[in-house]
Amino acid sequence: MTDEAKTSEPQATPGVSVTGPDDGEVIVLGTTRMRVLEDGSHTGHRLGMTESVLAPYTPGPPQHRHALHDEGFYIVSGTVRFTVGNEDYDASAGTLVMVPPGTPHTFTNPTGQPAVMLSTFTPALYVQYFRDLQSLAADGRPLTPRAGIQVMSRYATEPATDFA
């Protein structure tokens, strides 16, 4: 066995992307800390993936619909409440929630404990939405629901006003 094969760290080969536990772009949006695991640059923008830590009692975005991408949420720890239309679903660790295009949804951490979730975006276009929100905050503009909706509109996403 070669010395390289004996290491416990993953070895990247040409065309393979490896994001370690301390790697990835960090985006902080209010009480949510997000780490970009894949922004689409290694997948031809077919897939984006983030890890989010939602602090206790973190409110989510306004209920909204994506026209062009699927969104997946895998709960690693804690509980995340998903609102889909008029229905609430409390998703605990080990739960996967898939949201197809056109489906109204939002999420929140309603508990006193942090929640961690992995999110996928297919295609990856929505990762830039989070970067844009962070830029707003860095420019000193508040992250209001209205500001979020304005940024959402750039990414084929609109508020689900029929469920507001």
Rank of each mutant, 00 (worst) to 15 (best):
G102R: 03
V28W: 01
L47S: 07
R141A: 09
Y155H: 01
L136T: 13
R141D: 06
A91C: 15
V26C: 12
T122W: 00
L136S: 14
S153N: 14
P145H: 12
S153Y: 12
N109S: 01
S52W: 06
P101T: 01
G44K: 00
R146N: 07
A5L: 12
T19H: 08
H105E: 01
T161K: 10
D23R: 10
Q134A: 15
G44R: 05
T79N: 08
R131Y: 00
V53T: 15
M152C: 05
T2C: 05
L37F: 10
H45R: 14
V36K: 03
R46E: 10
S77H: 04
P101W: 02
G78S: 06
G72M: 13
L133M: 02
A124N: 01
P114I: 04
Q63V: 13
S77N: 03
D70T: 12
A67F: 10
G24T: 07
P123L: 03
L47Y: 09
H69Y: 10
V97R: 07
G40F: 04
Y89C: 08
V97W: 08
A5K: 07
A124C: 02
T19G: 05
L29W: 00
L29P: 01
R141T: 09
P56V: 09
H64Y: 10
L118S: 04
N109F: 04
M34W: 09
Y57C: 04
T108M: 02
R141G: 05
V151H: 05
F163K: 09
A5N: 10
R33K: 14
P145N: 09
T122N: 11
A93P: 04
L29M: 10
R131D: 00
E9H: 12
Y57V: 07
I27C: 10
R154Q: 04
D139A: 15
P159A: 04
M34N: 13
E4R: 15
M1I: 13
G94M: 07
Q134P: 04
H42L: 08
G40T: 11
H105Y: 11
M49R: 02
T50L: 15
H105S: 00
I149C: 03
P59S: 14
L37E: 11
T144R: 08
V53I: 15
F107V: 01
M98W: 09
E9F: 14
G148K: 00
T58F: 08
G112F: 03
A138K: 12
H66K: 06
M98H: 06
